[in-house]
């Protein structure tokens, strides 16, 4: 990995983290309502996987999807405006935080239905195969979704047809309030790949370098026509299922504190400093750039108009003649 990539991975993780923490702050102030599912502590996965993709590749994502959107390069202005439910949002205020789309960034929907992005990615993979392009499709999902029927149907189908799909399982330890320990038959979900005759790898999801490496290999396989890969990235959901969730009801704060000590950004930052790749000036510039982009986006979103009432009926399905 070259210096530029190393720094880009750090900057992307910081951009995701800071964007989301800013959203959390606004949410607490009461200026945002709706459901906000945040990704704090899991940034290495979105950053690492998306760094291995091309602009014309596809992703499907989840209710905890703003990290993936940022990592795919969705403009912060349209992302934050959508969370505000404003006319200038990526979906004109029709989607919201759980339902983000960006045709320019290959974001084929962050679906609010757990597991549902996998069949869609399978279909995107099928379209790639039928059109003989060299794209790949990535489905981000969670440990919870790996217990869902859509997981089984999609992995089997993609394996049988050797579709160019990456199934990226973000094992963050919790499916809403229920721990993976209590709900998932295996500790390492990567082993489930064997059940479909495809590579199933388990990596430390807090190590952006390892995620990037695993994703790069899976992308190589996919583009070479060798079929799908299951990548389990083990991480931890620092925050509650949603903002306002009483997470202390179902887990010890000691567990959360321990997870904070394995912070993916702090780790990578220290590694780059040690490597001599990252100096104070570079880091300051990086932070300043991100902070300025976020503030610009927040101001843009806050100042943007709400959708006009008639927009409730737009886009209207074209009526047959």
């Amino acid at each position: 990995m070259n210096r530029k990539t190393k720094l880009a991975l750090l900057e992307m993780m910081l951009r995701i983290r800071k964007t989301e923490l800013r959203l959390a702050e606004i949410y607490r102030s009461g200026d945002l309502t709706g459901a906000l599912h945040l990704y704090e502590g899991e940034e290495a996965i979105a950053a690492g996987v998306c760094a291995a993709l091309n602009r014309d590749d596809f992703i499907t994502s989840t209710h905890r999807g703003s990290g993936h959107c940022v990592a795919r390069g969705m403009p912060l202005r349209t992302l934050i405006a959508e969370v505000y439910g404003k006319a200038t949002g990526c979906c004109g205020g029709k989607g919201g935080h759980m339902h983000m789309f960006d045709v320019d960034a290959g974001i084929m929907g962050t679906t609010g239905i757990v597991g549902a992005g996998m069949p869609l990615a399978t279909g995107l993979g099928l379209s790639i195969q039928l059109r003989k392009t060299s794209q790949v499709a990535v489905a981000f999902f969670s440990d919870g979704a790996s217990n869902n029927g859509a997981f089984h149907e999609s992995l089997n189908m993609a394996a049988v047809w050797k579709l160019p799909v990456l199934f990226v399982c973000e094992n963050n330890g919790y499916a809403t309030s229920v721990s993976a320990r209590r709900s998932t038959s295996v500790t390492d979900i990567g082993v489930r790949g064997a059940g479909y005759g495809i590579p199933g790898v388990t990596v430390d999801g807090n190590r952006v370098d390892r995620v990037y490496q695993a994703a790069s290999e899976a992308v190589r396989r996919a583009r070479a026509g060798e079929g799908p890969t299951l990548i389990e990235c083990q991480t931890y959901r620092i925050r509650g299922h949603y903002e306002g969730d009483d997470w202390w009801e179902y887990r010890d704060s000691a567990e959360v504190e321990e997870a904070r000590r394995r912070d993916p950004i702090a780790f990578w930052q220290a590694a780059l400093v040690e490597d001599g790749v990252l100096g104070e000036k570079t880091l300051d510039e990086m932070n300043a750039r991100i902070d300025s982009d976020i503030e610009d986006a927040v101001q843009f979103a806050a100042a943007s108009p709400l959708p006009e009432p008639e927009q409730a009926f737009v886009p209207a399905h074209p009526q047959p003649a």
Binding site: P119, L120, G123, E153
Partner: peptide
């Protein structure tokens, strides 16, 4: 390639249709 037998996986069949349609097929 254009007439495709599937596994008995109704959700994935429908989802594959939606995904392919979103990609323009």
């Amino acid at each position: 390639r254009r007439v495709i037998d599937t596994p008995i996986s109704e959700e994935a069949i429908a989802g594959a249709g939606v995904g392919a349609a979103m990609a323009g097929l």
